[in-house]
Design a protein around this nucleic acid. Structure first.
Lengths: 230, 230
DNA sequence: AAACCACTCGCACGGTGTACGAGGATCGTC
DNA sequence: GACGATCCTCGTACACCGTGCGAGTGGTTT
């Protein structure tokens, strides 16, 4: 079996007092946040740490490995609450919202979801907590995994295209009228669509996306809860 | 507003009898299927069409534009059925399965979901059909859009990490015992997880993913259906 | 014949990841 | 103090990338 991943290697180097893996990963996350996935290059990262580009290869086998580490860092930001304190539904709901916020804060991580399996310690931690929540809800056996996958899928699937949308909008100021005109033109071939689509949506797209996310989240949780009542 | 996208430009060139945009896009999809997103380069694509690398730039403004075109090609493969014939639930279920299959067949498209908004004619067609299905179910106004987003999100979110998993597995033959050992080691710090996780899962991961997808799909549809009963 | 046009493509530029091997710094042991 | 060994840095080099530019080619129109 190949399956090369940082997480399956021998324990890391003890790391002396100089540069450390953690420091490098932190700088990478910073650079990724500022310049996106394409903005991260070993040379730029090296410069930011006042080091040569190839010096980093002492701490990290490859750029992909660095991305694996940065990706798990993101998972570490997701906030879990104890289901015993707020109830499983609220706990899951809060976790879902947190996941969305974290991904939107680090848009580059959306690109990595389809490329790297989430095997880092932080990702496993989150997965473990979500499992507990579903267990607290009354799920058992492999259904716990199915339910977790379903909720995670919903959050990712809702958030990832949101990133694309934000990126396409770019830095230009948003103009509701102009956007409406664009949509009207783009969807000219679909009269039914235009007829029922609510063009007021483009007045405050941020708020609508929030609304949409909540709608879907409630629906998914309802659907999952229904599996309990057999 | 910037928002540069192929779809918002003036109608395409008439395209004479020689090389055509369609031909180039088709070759690009073929290359992407064979070598993945990183495997597509203008030089390789040019060679495949026995053309110079930069010749393609006559038909396509930029590589990103080519990707937009290829991406929409994928949307064109998704199969829609008429909700009047099979009922809205079956129609949506079939569409969801089709979307998953198509994305798995073109794994590179998973990476594009987070980068390009789905604005091509084929994507709009699918969106329009899904809207009709939800309309046939009884949804109204912007709730149609919310429900569509929710279902699409579920399908994407379930499928995209599946791509990552397939990619990580690589070409090496799958060994259930070895995989179990790896998982046991990776999850050593999460005793609860190991205790309830079903290790038989690794006997036939393909079948389990299928099962998981169906479970989530039924749940999502149930949750959405519940929104109808106000 | 001349002018225009649609189209092709070689070259060059500035970027990328990273293999390699020569160096420097620091430490343990004699 | 001397001398390896080990840890760590990094300049150079290679193969590749997207694509701007401008020269060239062939067919059609005037």
């Amino acid at each position: 079996m190949s399956f090369t991943s940082v997480w399956l290697r021998e324990p890391r180097k003890p790391s002396g007092p100089g540069r450390s893996r953690e420091e490098i990963v932190a700088a990478a996350v910073e650079l990724l946040d500022q310049e996106g996935l394409d903005g991260l290059s070993m040379r730029k990262l090296g410069a930011r740490l006042s080091a040569g580009a190839t010096s980093l290869y002492w701490y990290v086998a490859t750029k992909d490995e660095l991305l694996e580490l940065a990706y798990d860092q993101v998972w570490g930001e997701m906030a879990v609450v104890d289901p015993d304190e707020v109830g499983w539904r609220d706990a899951l709901s809060a976790l879902a919202h947190s996941m969305r916020q974290v991904i939107l804060r680090h848009p580059w991580s959306g690109d990595l979801i389809g490329r790297l399996p989430a095997l880092g310690p932080n990702a496993l931690h989150v997965a473990d907590r979500m499992r507990r929540m579903f267990k607290a809800a009354g799920f058992e056996g492999s259904v716990i995994d199915f339910a977790s996958s379903t909720l995670t899928a919903y959050v990712f699937g809702m958030t990832i295209p949101e990133i694309a949308w934000n990126a396409a909008m770019g830095q230009t100021r948003y103009d509701a009228d102009e956007m409406r005109a664009t949509v009207r033109k783009a969807a000219a071939d679909f009269p039914e669509m235009l007829e029922s689509v609510d063009l007021d949506v483009y007045e405050d797209p941020q708020a609508v996306r929030e609304l949409c996310f909540d709608f879907g989240l409630v629906s998914v949780l309802d659907g999952l809860e229904r599996r309990l009542a057999t």
